[in-house]
Design a protein around this nucleic acid. Structure first.
Lengths: 368, 368
DNA sequence: TCGGTAAGAGGAAACGCTTTCCATAAACCT
DNA sequence: AGGTTTATGGAAAGCGTTTCCTCTTACCGA
């Protein structure tokens, strides 16, 4: 006997079960099975029970593609990040995935690696897969690249800024608040000579962080010489190089604020290599509060931009755009707070009285 | 006039274009368009050209779901990893994605976080999405959890070991080779008292690494006291705790080999906190060669298990299982080599003559 | 007892695509 | 030149689901 393993087409994967098999088993029509599966109340509870038992028995799983084809909704969300290897993003991805799955969505992830043609292909792929919405968490993508998505009126979520169009929602990160806290923290410790290592300035978010720094400084009446603003690229390598430039200056700043944690970690390395102690000689402050930050030596004082907040806002904003009866369907802006987390990479400026006292106490305790 | 924007159903997303629109524009049948898109040679080149131009003009993108529905192949690959926040995995994911996309596949990622129920739901989701194959890169997943996938004869790729069934392919990581190189490197420097921090031993790969270590040691006639094998959990926190136990021992080992890089980084931290210098007091060697390893202080000597190799083998093995005429369709095992990368976290054991010479030279150069 | 109504279940169409089959046109051979 | 084969386009049949519409059945009141 070479009969097919099930009554449906023999092209199908073995063990695959369709709604028809369930219908046959339960002795009802496929329409009834569909209604039972979708918990439509007009179905007789007795029949529904029979359907559910049949589903259990034959091991039925509804085919998502067929569902998507007919319903026009794929229940997939696109998530575009800059580079998955930057430790900030996996944390974001993880949280985004958790939340999306909890809401019954699948996640299609893509990283642009800052390459326009990659972004291009990424968007085309997401369009083809017919995602229900896309979160563009690249912190400053070129707008024209997402033009296609905008045209097709996909629900879209951007960080910081996006075109002012229907179906576009924006997560406004309040860089100012956290950076002001950081600057005031340093100023309160006595720092006056504070440098800033930026991210790649073509990124809107990097420029926003730098501007927030300059604003906070001028609020305190502190001036920033041009050579105290050095451009990095949000990688550790970039942080090392940028810090090296600052070390080469005639007046080494007493504190350095960095546009992200990886840059700050790079700065720590550069200082360590040149036998400068942190925080005794130079205070270093990061931005993001990635997991790694607390395990640095010394643990990094940093401005927290919570992935949890960001991911939660992104998923909520996408759902608001997708599900027409969502309570926040009309909301277009989500505020993301930032706040300073003080650890041990920031202290009194070198040469000041409190620093000397600290250092003496430290030596007395046997630390180096 | 409130006519719909295109001639198809008005339920569709605006701007969405179907094969019918292309056919109309090119003045051919939809079958011809389909054949042109799928590059079937029997279509008249002139017509094909007209079709391609029409596709360009109307901005047509084939609907992947419809394609998958009829062809039975979704062109999606599942990738299951342990935890995306462990830096090893993003590197793997990135490479896997690049390769898969280059072959025309999309990637559905999921992390188990070592929770069985998460894995369960992950697999159900992948089944529903009808992925063409799944790579289970968790380095030791419980087999029964993937039973469903096995039953349905999904092409499956495991790391290290998997059930010996058709459609199962295994990437055999040669832990022995790299770890032998590491042990011999340390022994050559003069180390005799070498400890090992394991990963979570329920993971097959963690046990395999420990066994490889013990084997390499005994090959050299070196004994390993029971308290020199400490269990970690492949995280930095675990590495810190495990190293703390070693530090508390009466005879501090002169070298510590770790089951992965995050553990080694934890060990570096624990040593740093207790004012032990690496490599002068203790040599530390990692495993994986994650990107971060080269930026540690000191840069970490480690055994490289290339994500590139692993990802390439995984994608190739999956394709071999999916595409029936694949040249390597019959191959069931892929070998993944490992090799030692010597950096600066390993040196002569403390108290030996070469170490004293090194130290003196180092002091002379002004380093600490 | 019978007509009217409402609830529940089934049949069938549609979603966008691929694939197969068939009809037509063109080319070849005898 | 007529018949046969080969190329090529067009029409139609699914793929697995949802949804609309129709039909049956049961229940209620008169």
């Amino acid at each position: 006997m070479n009969a097919p393993r099930n009554a449906s087409s023999d092209r199908r994967r073995p063990g695959s079960v369709s709604i028809r098999d369930v219908a046959r088993r339960a002795g009802v029509s496929i329409a009834t099975v569909s209604r039972a599966v979708n918990r439509i109340p007009t179905v007789d509870p007795v029949l529904a029970e029979r359907v559910w038992r049949a589903i259990e028995e034959v091991g039925y799983l509804p085919n998502t593609q067929a569902r998507a084809l007919v319903s026009g909704r794929s229940r997939m969300l696109g998530l575009i990040v800059s580079e998955i290897t930057n430790p900030f993003f996996p944390e974001l991805v993880q949280e985004f995935e958790n939340l999306a799955v909890a809401q019954g969505y699948e996640v299609l992830i893509g990283s642009t690696n800052y390459e326009p043609e990659r972004t291009e292909s990424l968007i085309r792929r997401m369009l083809q897969r017919n995602v229900d919405g896309v979160a563009v968490m690249t912190f400053g993508i070129e707008e024209e690249l997402v033009q296609k998505l905008v045209e097709r009126e996909f629900p879209l979520v951007f960080v910081d800024a996006g075109p002012d169009l229907p179906n576009i929602r924006v997560l406004k990160v309040n860089y100012g608040e956290g950076i002001r806290q950081a600057v005031q923290h340093l100023a309160a410790l006595g720092h006056r000579n504070i440098a800033f290592i930026t991210g790649p300035l073509r990124l809107r978010s990097a420029a926003a962080r730098r501007d927030a720094f300059l604003k906070s400084m001028s609020e305190l009446g502190l001036t920033v010489p041009a050579d105290h603003i050095v451009e990095g690229d949000h990688t550790m390598e970039g942080g090392i190089a940028a810090m090296a430039k600052l070390i080469a200056l005639a007046d080494l700043p007493t504190a350095v604020l960095c546009s992200n944690d990886m840059t700050a970690i790079g700065a720590l390395h550069a200082l360590y290599r040149t036998t400068h102690n942190v925080p005794q000689d130079v205070s270093v402050v990061g931005f993001d509060d990635i997991h790694l930050a607390q395990f640095m030596l010394p643990p990094l004082t940093t401005v927290q931009m919570s992935c949890m907040d960001l991911a939660a806002a992104a998923v909520e904003a996408l759902r608001a755009g997708i599900e027409k009866d969502h309570p926040k369907a009309e909301k277009t802006e989500w505020q993301i707070p930032t706040r300073l987390v003080v650890r041990q990479s920031s202290a009194f400026p070198r040469g000041t009285l409190p620093a000397l006292v600290e250092r003496a106490a430290g030596h007395a305790r046997g630390k180096r």
